[in-house]
Structure formats: structure tokens, C-alpha cells
Computed example of a mutant assay.
Amino acid sequence: IAIGVTHPVTGQLLSLHPMAQRFLRGLPAELVQSLNQRCTWMLCRRPAISCDLDHTKPYAQGGETSVDNVAPLCRRHHRVKTEGDWKVEQTSPGHLRYTDPHGRKYEVTPPRLTDPVDDPDPPPF
């Protein structure tokens, strides 16, 4: 069981107690998928539901299986991250900083879940 704390206005996840297991399952996995919605690699559009849930800091190196350390990556980008010379840091759930082999940094943030919806019938002026 995990207890999450969310922001009262935006609904963004602020903290979640870590899970003591190798793979994120159940509600925490759904939370990561819902928060990010897509692969967290730059400009990738693959839906999070069809992605691997990747440890930002590898499990083998002491990375926790928690919302703070797991993000969706499609299989292709999971391999690029794991086998390439990319560095990844998750500054908060869903907020990632990728550093490419040349030292360039890329910030990735989750889409806002509270974006306003256009009024289909705007008032006349």
C-alpha cells in the first residue's frame, strides 16, 4: 500500500512512500503512467501505458522502486538510455533532466492535467 500527497490546486503528485519491490505495480504504476501520459524521452509520443516503467537511477545501483524514481520509457528509448552514454535525473515525479553524451541537457516535464478547456459556446461580444 502506498500513500500519496498531491498539490491541492494542481493535483500534481508531491510525494509517495516507496514500494519495496523490483517492479512498480498497481496504483503507483498507474499514477506514473497517468502523470506522464507518454514516453518521457524528448518528443516521443508513445502512450505511457505501452511503455516500460524504467528506474531513473538503476535498481542494481540502489535505485528505489518508487514514483520518485520510475518513469515511462518506450522500449526503444529505454535501450538508448540504458545502453547509451545518457545520464538521467528525476528532480521530482515526472520531471526529468536528460544529459546527452556531449553534455547537453534536456528538461522534460509532465503535461498539465488541469489545462483549461476551451468553452464550446463563448459568450457573444
Rank of each mutant, 00 (worst) to 15 (best):
D68H: 13
I1V: 13
A2L: 12
L27I: 11
L53I: 11
F125N: 07
S34D: 07
Q61E: 15
R112C: 05
I3E: 14
H55F: 06
S15L: 06
K57H: 10
T40W: 00
D52I: 00
P120H: 10
R104D: 06
P28F: 01
L35R: 14
R46W: 04
R112D: 13
G11N: 09
T10R: 12
E89T: 15
L16N: 03
V80H: 06
G26W: 13
P120I: 06
P116V: 05
P58S: 10
E64D: 15
D121T: 12
V80P: 00
A2H: 13
R22S: 03
R75A: 15
V108A: 01
R45S: 13
V5F: 12
V32R: 00
Y106C: 01
D85W: 05
F23L: 07
D119A: 11
E89D: 13
K105M: 12
P122C: 08
H95L: 02
Q33N: 06
H7R: 11
A48I: 03
P111K: 03
G11T: 09
D121L: 13
S15F: 05
K57R: 12
P120D: 04
D52P: 03
G94N: 03
Y59L: 08
R79I: 06
Q12T: 10
E64R: 14
G11A: 10
S34W: 07
D118F: 09
I49V: 14
Q12C: 05
H17G: 11
V117H: 02
W41T: 02
T40K: 02
P124N: 03
R104P: 00
S34I: 01
P93G: 04
L24R: 02
L43A: 10
S92G: 14
L43Y: 09
R45M: 02
T91Y: 00
A71D: 10
L31Q: 07
P93M: 01
N36F: 01
P120F: 05
Q90C: 12
N36L: 01
L16H: 07
L31F: 02
G94K: 02
K105Q: 15
H7S: 10
H77Y: 07
E30M: 10
C51W: 04
L14M: 14
A60R: 14
E30C: 04
P116Y: 08
A48N: 03
S66A: 14
A71H: 12
P123D: 08
G84V: 10
L35I: 06
S66D: 03
L24D: 03
P28I: 00
L14N: 07
L43K: 09
P72T: 05
N69L: 08
V80D: 11
E30T: 06
V32Y: 00
K105H: 10
A29W: 06
T10V: 07
N69E: 11
V9D: 14
L113R: 14
G94A: 07
V108C: 05
V67L: 05
H7V: 07
P18G: 04
P28M: 00
L113D: 08
P110Q: 03
V70Y: 04
L16C: 15
S50W: 13
K87V: 03
P116F: 10
L13P: 11
I1G: 15
H7I: 05
L53H: 12
H78D: 07
K87S: 12
T6Y: 15
V108K: 02
P123S: 09
I3C: 10
N69R: 11
P110Y: 04
P93R: 03
D54P: 08
H102D: 11
P120C: 08
